[in-house]
Simulated assay, not measured.
Amino acid sequence: MKASVYYGKNDIRYEDVAVPEIEDGDILVKMKSCGLCGTDIHKAQHQTVTGPVVLSHEIAAEVVKVGKRVTRFRPGDRVVTAIHVPCFSCHYCDRGHFTLCEQFKPTNIEPGGFAEYIRLPELHVKHLTHKIPQGVSWEKAAMVEPIGCCLHGLKQAAITPGCSVLVMGSGTIGLLSAQLSAMMGASNVIVSDLSPFKLDLALRLGINHAINPAQENLEARIGEITDGLGVDLVVIAAGVSSLLPQAVNLLRRGGRVVVFSPFDQNNMVSIDAARFFRDEISIVGTYSLSSYEMPEAVEIISRNRINIDEMITHRWPLSSLGEAIEFAANPQHDVLKVIMQMDD
C-alpha cells in the first residue's frame, strides 16, 4: 500500500509500506479523507517526532476487512475514528479525566492517517469508531475528530445561555469552538486573530465579532461589546503563551479561561494572581477528546448544526503531503482546513 511517511523536516516520502495485519477484534479500513491537523504541521515543521512515522488521525474511511469477533461493522461501512483510548477504570477515568489515563497516549492506530490502509485495534473498534451517517461526505466526516476535541474542551467551560465568549485564534479549532459556543447558547461570540482571511471567514460563519488586535485595541473592543463587564469565557486556541495574561484581564468576575493550545514550556508569563481570590476566576486546560464526544460530534455533523463546508479550504492528494504542509504553514496563504485524499 501507499503512505506518506515523515522522515524529518522537508523529508516526507510517498512510498510503499506493508498493509497492517489485523487480529480478531480489529478492523482494516481504507482512508478516504484525512484532515491535516495543526499538530501534524507542528510535528513536521519543528521535528518533535522521530521518523520514519506516518502522521495524522482525523480519519474518514471505508471498512475493507473485519476480525472474527467484530459484529458492529462489516466491509463497505463508512466510519470515523480517533486516536487514543482510556482504560475507563483507573483513578483518572473514575473521575472523568479520561485523557489523563496512563493508557490513553500509548494507544494508537496503525500506522497513522496518512496511509492507504489503517488498522483500527480492538479498543478503537469498541470505543471510538462510529458509522458515518448517510448524506455526510468523506471530507466532512474527517472533521468529526476535531469537533470532538472542541466539545471536550468546551465541557470545561460551563457555557450558559446568553453568555459571552472570546476565542483567541481563528484557526480550525478556534472557529469550531466559536461555532460550537454559539450552538451551546452563547449569545455573543467574538474571535480575535491577525489574519484578515480568517476574520472574514469567521463573520461568514456567523460569528458576531471578529477583531484584529494588530489594528484595534482588543481590551477596549471587548469592553464596548460587553458594556464593560468582560467576557464570561475565553478560549485560547493559539499556542502563544502571552495570550494567557491578556485572557485573564479580559474576563468578567467569575469568568473562566480554557487553554486549548499547547504553550512553549520555556516561555513563562505573569498573570494577575489576585483575581483568583478577588474575582473567583478560573483557568483550566484541555487536551484531545474522550470516547463520549465522538458520537456527539457525529450528530452535529449529520444535522449540519455548524458550518463545516466553508471551513474546508483546500484538498490535496496524499502524495503531495509535504507540499500541503508547507502551504498550510505559510501565514501568507489564505488557508484554513486542508483535507488529504488518496491519489486517483
Results as ranks from 00 to 15, higher is better:
residue 26 D to H: 06
residue 29 V to C: 03
residue 29 V to N: 02
residue 31 M to E: 00
residue 32 K to C: 04
residue 33 S to T: 00
residue 34 C to I: 03
residue 35 G to W: 07
residue 37 C to L: 03
residue 37 C to S: 12
residue 39 T to V: 13
residue 41 I to W: 03
residue 41 I to P: 03
residue 41 I to S: 05
residue 41 I to D: 02
residue 42 H to G: 12
residue 42 H to Q: 12
residue 43 K to S: 09
residue 43 K to D: 09
residue 43 K to L: 09
residue 43 K to E: 13
residue 43 K to V: 04
residue 44 A to S: 15
residue 44 A to W: 04
residue 44 A to V: 03
residue 45 Q to K: 15
residue 45 Q to C: 07
residue 45 Q to L: 12
residue 45 Q to Y: 04
residue 46 H to K: 14
residue 48 T to Y: 11
residue 49 V to C: 03
residue 49 V to A: 07
residue 49 V to Y: 08
residue 50 T to I: 10
residue 51 G to M: 01
residue 51 G to Q: 02
residue 52 P to W: 06
residue 53 V to L: 04
residue 53 V to E: 10
residue 54 V to E: 01
residue 55 L to M: 12
residue 55 L to N: 04
residue 56 S to F: 04
residue 58 E to V: 00
residue 59 I to F: 02
residue 59 I to E: 00
residue 59 I to W: 00
residue 60 A to P: 05
residue 61 A to R: 00
residue 61 A to S: 13
residue 62 E to H: 01
residue 62 E to W: 01
residue 63 V to Q: 03
residue 63 V to L: 04
residue 64 V to Q: 03
residue 64 V to R: 01
residue 65 K to Q: 11
residue 65 K to Y: 07
residue 67 G to A: 11
residue 67 G to R: 08
residue 69 R to I: 14
residue 69 R to S: 15
residue 69 R to V: 12
residue 70 V to L: 07
residue 72 R to N: 12
residue 73 F to T: 00
residue 74 R to P: 00
residue 76 G to D: 04
residue 77 D to Y: 00
residue 77 D to Q: 01
residue 78 R to N: 08
residue 79 V to N: 02
residue 86 P to Q: 07
residue 86 P to M: 00
residue 86 P to H: 06
residue 86 P to C: 04
residue 88 F to L: 13
residue 88 F to C: 08
residue 90 C to H: 10
residue 90 C to T: 09
residue 91 H to M: 05
residue 92 Y to W: 15
residue 92 Y to S: 10
residue 92 Y to E: 08
residue 93 C to H: 10
residue 96 G to K: 05
residue 97 H to R: 13
residue 97 H to M: 10
residue 98 F to C: 10
residue 99 T to D: 10
residue 100 L to W: 08
residue 103 Q to R: 15
residue 105 K to Q: 14
residue 106 P to E: 11
residue 106 P to S: 10
residue 107 T to K: 08
residue 109 I to V: 14
residue 109 I to M: 10
residue 110 E to G: 02
residue 110 E to I: 14
